[in-house]
Design a binder for these strands. Structure first.
Length: 590
RNA sequence: CGGGCUGUGGCGCAGUUUGGUAGCGCACUGCACUGGGGGUGCAGGGGUCGUGGGUUCAAAUCCCGCCAGCCCGACCA
């Protein structure tokens, strides 16, 4: 490709609306262009990268026997009503009407369509297992698109779906996808982790996420030295055994005036009711937080959550575990409606579904039978100490709502947890039978009776991958593409204006292309060498060949974009040397 | 949806406080020079100052409404 012909305009300044490196660089280097908030056009360079990533995904999906097809992005409402997602998806769903006023939508994901397609065409266990996929444009009307291509309202996703007669088949399909994803992400060349995920609103059981490790990521995950890894929302707490409380002293109600917060409470306890063994700590207290759950049907239900006083309630984690209900703050009006709740002094004695208050009470897994707590006494300025779980109060169950902190023990005993940020690149789910049931996907089994099909759903953010790779692969000069996704194999710069230079360049381009190497050839005549070098580094092709002043001595330069190292090569060896460069090193990383 | 900020040639910005000829850099066009790190000079083209209304002799600038965009928090490939 001749650069003089390429539809490209590099920018000297960062776009004002860009914040993260991938967004700035992709716009500056002429890969993408903003069309609307969260909606981007792919310019020739960008499209080449996108196509390369798609090809890798396609190869690996085909390799596990998945068949590619494609559904429309413009979809009828009915299937999404059948699964209730027309409602549940909420404002993130792009809805529109056709000229007759019929409701339609732009597909945010295609479980319904694939399920119905299988239902339409298959009716026997003999047709299964089946794996289908598509690489297709998705639409989600995100409340806040950001970071350019990393989080758009229109994006390209590979989504695949497995259909099996039983759980064993589903498990196998899931594992095959998992392996394929590992191969795909290894080939794409960025650092990633596989973490346990919450299957959340999608329903189903097993679920893992592939997160690209990146400080600009929006997901927080944990990992331990022993190999445990989970999304922070899915982390479980290492809970201790129930303890014997036969010798525990009786609970004692004490005056603690002016102690609406945990800090003030600890100070007053240490001053007025010191422990014999050690000072009171925040973790000795039991903090009871009241929230209002809003169920999908609009029903509002107060919920009490008990966590150790040294921890905050992590609203995201809480919401994950009460889904599909949403969490709202407990308002002043709510407190007025529940006079038994004394703000700042709420204790578990009056909580619980069976208690007079009727408020469901869920506690942190650290609150096990036999543990003793300092907590509210349900009257202003009063607390109770030595309140023992299982003896003095009960609860309706446990909930993973407390914040996760670095150093917390991993639930599998594999050591202290470390927290890091990531970008969700892939997600694999065992959906089970939720969609098949709602849409009536059944086939006849060997015994001639109808069986509901077990499904899995698996996604990869293809367009997002472009941004993720740049996030990990750039320096202060521009992008540094991993070879396997670079828009071109070689960027050839003519640094000079002597006709012999262009002749030599034309010659080399011809030889390289004949050998199957794609070349971006900077043939611009009136552009100074400095500009060409800057453009080459911004665009980020991993191998830069320079034909310039060395030509009179019969040498050209071969530069490595990543290391910025250059070596001189005799012109007669140019083809061999460049081919070695392009094909030589193993393809991963940048 | 809550909080903060911004709308001025293709891009990045100044000008708004104190109303008075719309400016700068990049990019673009032509010519000349230069030719290994976004080079120099000369000459050019291109702007409903987001939008509607108001105040005024006069509005990018002041007032009111609306719209759009960005960033920070709650949702997701």
């Amino acid at each position: 490709m001749r650069m003089s012909q390429l539809f490209l305009q590099t920018l000297r300044d960062d776009p004002a609306d860009a914040e993260v490196p991938s967004h700035k660089l992709l716009v500056r280097a002429g890969y993408i262009r903003r069309a609307a908030p969260g909606v981007y056009s792919w310019l020739p360079l960008g499209l080449r990268v996108l196509n390369k990533i798609e090809a890798i995904v396609r190869e690996e999906m085909d390799a596990i026997g998945a068949q590619e097809m494609r559904f429309p992005a413009l979809l009828p409402k009915e299937p999404y009503e059948a699964t209730n997602r027309w409602e549940e998806y909420g404002p993130n769903l792009f809805r529109l009407k056709d000229r007759r006023g019929v409701d339609m939508l732009l597909g945010p994901t295609h479980e319904e369509m694939f399920t119905l397609a299988v239902k339409d065409m298959y009716s026997s266990y003999k047709d299964l297992p089946a794996k289908l996929y598509q690489i297709q444009t998705k639409y989600r009307d995100e409340a806040r698109p950001r970071a350019g291509i990393l989080r758009g309202r229109e994006f390209i996703m590979k989504d695949s779906y497995s259909f099996d007669i039983d759980d064993a088949g589903l498990e196998q399909a899931y594992q095959e996808h998992r392996k394929a994803y590992i191969r795909i992400f290894d080939r794409l060349g960025f650092e990633y982790v596989i973490v346990k995920a919450d299957s959340g609103a999608m329903g189903g059981s097993a679920s893992e996420e592939f997160l690209a490790v990146s400080s600009t990521g929006e997901d927080t995950f944990v990992r331990s030295p022993g190999g445990y890894a989970a999304n922070v929302e899915a982390v479980t707490t290492l809970s201790s055994e129930a303890r014997d409380y036969a010798d525990a002293p009786a609970a004692q109600e004490v005056d603690t005036p002016g102690t609406p917060t945990i800090d003030t409470l600890v100070d007053v306890l240490n001053a007025n009711h010191p422990r014999t063994d050690r000072p009171w700590q925040a973790s000795d207290t039991l903090k009871n937080v009241i929230v209002m759950l809003v169920h999908p049907d609009g029903r509002r239900e107060p919920l009490a959550v008990g966590v150790p006083g040294d921890r905050e309630v992590d609203e995201k984690r809480l919401e994950t575990h009460v889904a599909p209900a949403e969490v709202e703050a407990f308002t002043d009006a709510d407190f007025e409606a529940n006079p038994a709740l004394v703000r700042g002094y709420i204790g578990p004695q009056i909580l619980g579904a069976d208690s007079p208050s009727g408020i469901r009470y869920l506690v942190d897994p650290r609150v096990v039978s036999g543990t003793s707590w300092a907590t509210g006494a349900n009257s202003e300025g009063r607390h109770v100490i030595g309140l023992v779980a299982g003896r003095d109060f009960d609860f309706d169950g446990t909930i993973e709502a407390a914040e996760v902190r670095p150093g917390d023990p991993a639930p599998d005993g594999s050591g202290p947890l470390e927290l890091a940020r990531g970008i969700e690149m892939g997600h694999i789910f065992q959906l089970g039978r939720k969609y098949a049931e709602r849409l009536g996907l059944q086939v006849l089994n060997e015994n001639g009776s109808l069986t509901t099909v077990a499904m899995g759903s698996y996604g990869i953010g293809v367009s997002r991958a472009v941004g993720v790779i740049v996030e990990g692969c750039h320096d202060d000069r521009g992008i540094i593409w991993p070879r396997q996704v670079s828009p071109f194999d070689v960027h050839l710069v003519v640094a000079g204006k002597a006709p012999e230079m262009f002749d030599a360049a034309e010659n080399l381009v011809g030889e390289l292309e004949a050998a199957g190497v794609s070349v971006l050839y900077d043939d611009r005549v009136k552009v100074s060498p400095g500009v060409k070098f800057k453009d080459a580094e911004l665009i980020g092709v991993p191998t830069i060949v320079v034909i310039g002043k060395g030509l009179v001595d019969g040498v050209i330069e071969v530069k490595d974009r990543a290391s910025n190292s250059a070596r001189s090569v005799p012109i007669e060896n140019a083809l061999t040397e460049v081919l070695g460069e392009v094909r030589g090193e193993s393809s991963s990383g940048c």
